[in-house]
Design a protein around this nucleic acid. Structure first.
Length: 423
DNA sequence: TTAGGGTTATAC
DNA sequence: GTATAACCCTAA
């Protein structure tokens, strides 16, 4: 099984290649073992891929805005602020141009967007550590949007403005600058460093260097065939291989000391579980994955005697959730799946079965990282309950897939219970 | 799919 | 240590 750190290096390298399509990128994301939480550089790379995908589709959506927000929390580059402002404006103004809607319906959508984006999201940003995104231009835009709420003439003027083109240009500029700022990938930097080193004693590193060079030069179709770097397993293959103790991907000879290669800290990687904020771990639709850094679960302890599955647990027995360790996020397809729970179970079982440090005869339930509800989510839930009624959680989630992307129907129900508990 | 009880994490 | 939010489990 390839080390998750190496998996992160390989994935970063591949995601930065323009000729790796989104479909292949998605497969790689599922196939490669990755550290949890993801290294910031890899998180940023994933977000940049997402922005590039939006650009290629000429799509400017709340998802784009979210990507920029998350990127800023990882790498607070100055070019993010203008892009964020331009995208926020476009996301607000776009409803005014919806052709099938009547004027009043467009206005209603616009008011809702002003509330979601400017009154909730931007207001949250101003209070949070992401305040760097809050520029003078953003404040001016906010004033203009708020003025347009009460001024039909200004709304008409906004509807005619080329805000989408401005947003696309700003995102493109931001993307180019960030890719430039990030420099070469870790593998490329490592390969260059190794090649420039004439130390004879590091023969194994030179072997790796040759492999990396070869890897850089081979066509992606070879990668897709999985021949040059070993078998790239499908999701099912991977699950099977982890259960059966299969090898998975082989990139290099494992006689290379891991520590020799772990210069990732200098490269901006962090393998410290606690060093990343909650939001960073939600970055860009990650999967949960094996984590070989910690040999013990983050929370909870192993039960020395696994319960007999035939025995119905007593109410006094400790809940299975006590045997937990956190997984960090819901993967890309998770929120889009018709059955999130099944996928959660799938990833949970994959983690519990593939964690080499655990006794594989035991089962552990992964517990999601706690995510505090932000005011946008709360406000949306409040309005949705007023509109559709409490109890229609699936409908509510379905009506706001972007906002509740990482919440389950049960989460909505629980949150509403909390919100109404003390009323 | 939902409601309700239970568990865990976290802020104070 | 306590209160509470977030999350999980399970019966209906």
């Amino acid at each position: 099984m390839v080390d998750p750190v190496v998996g992160a290096w390989v994935l970063e390298f591949l995601l930065r290649r323009r000729d790796v399509g989104d479909a292949l990128a998605g497969e790689l994301l599922l196939a490669l073992p990755l550290p949890s939480p993801l290294p910031p550089r890899l998180s940023a790379t994933l977000l940049l891929r997402r922005l590039a995908a939006d650009l290629s589709r000429r799509s400017v959506s709340p998802r784009t805005l979210h990507s920029l927000d998350l990127l800023h929390r990882i790498l607070p580059f100055p070019s993010l602020a203008p892009a964020f402002t331009a995208v926020a404006v476009e996301c607000t103004v776009a409803p005014l141009r919806l052709p099938p809607l009547s004027s009043s319906e467009c206005d209603a959508e616009f008011f809702d967007a002003v509330n979601r984006i400017w009154n909730c999201l931007v207001a949250d940003l101003e209070r949070s550590e992401a305040a760097g995104l809050v520029s003078c231009a953003l404040r001016e835009a906010r004033m203009e949007m708020e003025a347009a709420v009460v001024d039909p003439a200004l709304r008409a003027q906004l509807a005619r403005r080329e805000t989408k083109e401005a947003a696309l240009v700003a995102v493109r500029v931001c993307l180019e600058e960030m890719e430039k700022e990030m420099g070469p990938t870790f593998l490329e930097a490592a390969a260059d460093a190794i090649v420039s080193c004439d130390c004879e004693t590091h023969r194994s590193l030179v072997v790796l260097s040759d492999k990396l060079r070869a890897f850089r030069s081979i066509g992606l179709e070879s990668v897709e065939r999985g021949v040059e770097i070993g078998h790239l397993p499908s999701k099912i293959d991977r699950a099977r291989s982890t259960v059966e103790g299969g090898e998975g991907i082989k990139l290099n000879d494992r006689n290379i000391e891991k520590d020799q290669m772990r210069t990732d800290q200098e490269q901006g990687y962090s393998v410290d579980k606690n060093s990343m904020s909650c939001e960073l771990q939600e970055v860009s639709d990650h999967k949960s994955c094996d984590n070989n850094y910690d040999d013990v679960p983050q929370s909870g302890q192993m039960d020395p005697v696994p319960p007999d599955p035939k025995d119905k647990p007593s109410l006094m027995d400790r809940n299975a959730t006590a045997h937990t360790f956190e997984w960090d996020s819901i993967p890309t397809h998770y929120g889009k799946s018709p059955n999130m729970k099944k996928e959660m179970d799938y990833f949970s079982s994959m983690n519990s079965k593939s964690s080499s440090s655990l006794n594989e005869t035991k089962e552990y339930v992964l517990r999601r990282r706690k995510r505090k509800w932000n005011s946008l989510e709360e406000e949306t839930l409040r309005k949705a309950v007023a509109r559709y009624g409490a109890g229609n959680w699936k409908l509510i989630k379905g009506c706001h897939p972007e906002i509740f992307e990482r919440r389950t129907e049960v989460d909505l129900k629980d949150k509403w219970r909390n919100m109404t508990r003390h009323m």
